[in-house]
């Protein structure tokens, strides 16, 4: 019906039009919605007051926040700010999902950057795999944030490994019928069990994709876009928390 060349031309035109429309919308969002005047590289007093002012309005208590961290587009300082803001807001677990596989190698840098940004802010930051370096609150009542970095290998490969251990008999997994129930299998593969399942996953850019993030744990978490341009600032962060607050879980009902 349509010649191949004409179809390809029209395909190109459709995508060009969509690209222009999306870009215009994104420029608008960047200028008017995600715009933030705070100086780069530091958490200001205004930032903290702004966060504290908005904390009591949060209806859905957020326990575990996961950020899809892409080392190609996010700076270490961006990620450190997210931790400090979460400390102020009172989110007890903040995890980074290492999309490119490079964040794990930059963990020490991230640690130092967080310590630098934290100066003067009450609260305690604990690292899952640096127990010796964990901070103290010196008896002051303050928020605590547990930080984890997850990667692809913590997801599907870990579950496959658990199945292998069960098959070998190295890991106990009892069953009362032909097939394991979710409770039976879940009990066996429970690892780092003190960490609650993520409630919210934040991503930047236009693509929403899990990239293999903890398949067992993400069943009910909300996926919310932090920004369209990969930029991370306090307005985007508060905007995402507002969106999360509007989400209504029905648990199948």
């Amino acid at each position: 019906m349509l010649s191949r060349l004409l179809r390809q031309f029209l395909f190109f035109v459709v995508h060009l039009v969509v690209k222009i429309l999306v870009d215009v919308q994104n420029v608008y969002r960047r200028l008017y919605i995600e715009n933030c005047n705070s100086p780069m590289g530091q958490v200001t007093k205004e930032n903290i007051l702004m966060l504290l002012e908005n904390v009591p309005r949060q209806k859905n208590r957020l326990k575990h926040l996961v950020v899809l961290a892409d080392s190609n587009v996010h700076t270490i300082s961006d990620l450190a700010h997210l931790v400090i803001w979460s400390l102020v807001v009172g989110i007890p677990y903040v995890s980074f999902y290492d999309v490119t596989g490079r964040l794990k190698t930059l963990e020490d840098k991230l640690f130092l950057e967080i310590e630098k940004s934290k100066k003067g802010i009450p609260g305690c930051i604990k690292w899952a795999n640096k127990p010796d370096l964990n901070g103290y609150t010196y008896g002051i009542q303050a928020n605590t944030v547990f930080i984890n970095i997850f990667s692809y290998s913590d997801g599907k490969p870990r579950i496959a490994e658990c199945i292998k251990f069960i098959a070998k008999g190295d890991l106990q997994c009892k069953r009362n019928s032909n097939e394991y129930t979710v409770q039976e299998f879940g009990e066996a593969i429970k690892f780092k069990s003190i960490i609650p399942d993520p409630d919210l996953v934040l991503y930047t850019g236009e693509l929403c994709c899990t990239f293999g993030l903890l398949p067992w744990q993400i069943r009910l978490c909300e996926f919310i876009q932090l920004s369209v341009h990969h930029n991370i600032n306090i307005n985007c962060y508060l905007g995402a928390l507002y969106k999360y607050n509007k989400c209504d879980q029905r648990f199948g009902k």
Binding site: I159, I163, Y180, V182, E184, F185
Partner: peptide, 15 residues
């Protein structure tokens, strides 16, 4: 169906 149930059933078949 649930995704967790699917994973649990697949694990049963493999074991």
């Amino acid at each position: 169906y649930t995704g967790r149930d699917e994973i649990s059933r697949a694990a049963s078949h493999i074991v």
